[in-house]
Simulated scan of single mutants.
Amino acid sequence: MSYIEPILGEKILVKLGDGESPEIFTAPNVINTTRGISFSTSTETDELIDLADQSAPAQTIRRVKSTDTKIDGSGMLDHADVPEWIEWSLSGKIRNVQAIVGNVIVEGPFVLTSFAITGDRLKSATCDLTLEQAGAVSQKPIA
């Protein structure tokens, strides 16, 4: 038999760069329950008309205009993390980020586009955040 080798959710790791040289990446405490990375494209669509039979259905073609990467995360909020995340949210600062998925590192500049803190009576506060691509993103295998 041959079984799939799954990637466990907690092994999808998001790390933030410190902006120094050499840059050191560390995983933030706030992304401790749910995390995800998505890749999307924006396309332009055309229809190619059959010149030999213009009443025939046209063929649709698409060209990629741009690509985009987004990272979402959530978790229980640690009291000590609040100032850093609010400061980043209000600053508009771009930071280098790594997302480790299986045996691949996705890396590039990201901006914090959403940071929400929620809480219920007698329960621990949680946060949800979204990081969106702010420049070229690359991928490389983990050595």
Rank of each mutant, 00 (worst) to 15 (best):
M76G: 08
A56H: 13
D53L: 06
P28I: 01
L48I: 14
P28F: 02
T34C: 03
T41N: 14
Q59D: 03
T41L: 10
G36M: 00
L48H: 03
P57Q: 12
D81Y: 05
P57R: 10
D46R: 14
N29P: 00
L48D: 06
V64H: 09
L77E: 05
S38Y: 04
F39V: 09
N32Q: 08
D50W: 01
T60I: 11
D68P: 08
N29S: 03
P57T: 06
S55Q: 14
K65N: 15
V64A: 13
P57K: 13
Q59M: 15
S66C: 08
R35K: 09
Q59F: 11
T34M: 00
Q54P: 15
S40F: 03
G36T: 00
H79A: 07
T33P: 00
E47A: 11
M76W: 11
R35L: 00
I37V: 06
T43Y: 05
T69I: 07
G36E: 04
I49F: 02
L51G: 12
R62I: 06
A80L: 09
T33D: 04
N29W: 01
D68L: 09
T33H: 01
R63C: 04
V64Q: 14
S74F: 01
E47M: 02
N32F: 05
A80Q: 11
T60K: 15
I49H: 07
G73Q: 07
V30F: 05
S38T: 14
N32A: 10
D72Y: 00
T34H: 00
S55I: 03
Q59E: 12
P83A: 08
V30Q: 07
T43Q: 15
L77K: 10
D50S: 02
S38V: 06
E44M: 09
A52E: 14
F39I: 12
E47S: 05
N29Y: 02
M76P: 01
A58C: 07
T33Q: 08
T33S: 09
D53E: 08
G75K: 03
Q54G: 09
L51K: 13
G75F: 02
L48V: 11
G36I: 00
V82N: 02
D78N: 03
I71K: 09
T67W: 11
S38N: 12
T67S: 12
S40C: 04
I49A: 11
S74D: 13
K65G: 12
H79D: 13
I61M: 06
F39K: 12
D81I: 02
L51N: 13
